[in-house]
């Protein structure tokens, strides 16, 4: 299962900064973007553990909120979710760190893989090539663009 951590809009500079660079470089008019952090707790089906990991370990309660989901992105108000993870054969240093913390805190061993999700609704091709240039190296990353259901809702 995946824990998706995102900064509440009021404090989300990262999405704003990335959006500004995209809009400037690709001369796009309107563009909405939301960037989130993904923590894939591999082969963990226990909701209580996942919730604990999200709330007690990963979340910054002042500025962040979280969603628990599987492969399908759930954010409302966007058309696509572009997910980037490291390839399975590449070491995920942050993931290993998180796995270690989980182990020390709740005495369970999980493999953790970290990633990012970019939510957007327009200029698909331009945005994909922007992401390829700035955040992606096909030597070490995987990229998947998932279409969101029109009627999905977000809930923490």
């Amino acid at each position: 299962m995946i824990i998706e951590i995102y900064t509440v809009d009021k404090y989300d500079r990262e999405s704003k900064n990335i959006r500004e660079v995209f809009v400037k470089n690709f001369k796009v008019n309107r563009f909405n973007l939301k960037v989130t952090k993904l923590y894939n707790i591999v082969e963990c089906e226990d909701i209580t553990s996942i919730d604990l990991i999200a709330r007690d370990i990963l979340l910054d309660p002042i500025v962040e909120e979280y969603i628990i989901r599987r492969e399908k992105p759930l954010f409302k108000g966007y058309k696509w979710g572009l997910e980037i993870f490291l390839k399975k054969s590449v070491a995920d240093v942050v993931g290993e760190s998180v796995s270690d913390v989980i182990n020390k805190l709740i005495d369970k061993k999980f493999n953790v893989r970290t990633g990012k999700c970019f939510y957007f609704s327009s200029s698909r091709d331009k945005f994909i090539s922007f992401i390829r240039e700035e955040f992606f190296n096909d030597l070490i990353h995987t990229m998947e663009i998932k279409e969101l259901d029109k009627n999905v809702f977000i809930k923490r």
């Binding site: 590449v90 070491a91 760190s97 070490i140």
Partner: peptide, 11 residues
Amino acid sequence: TSSHVQIGHAI
């Protein structure tokens, strides 16, 4: 190829 890529772990 990518088997020549190494990942650093500063800590």
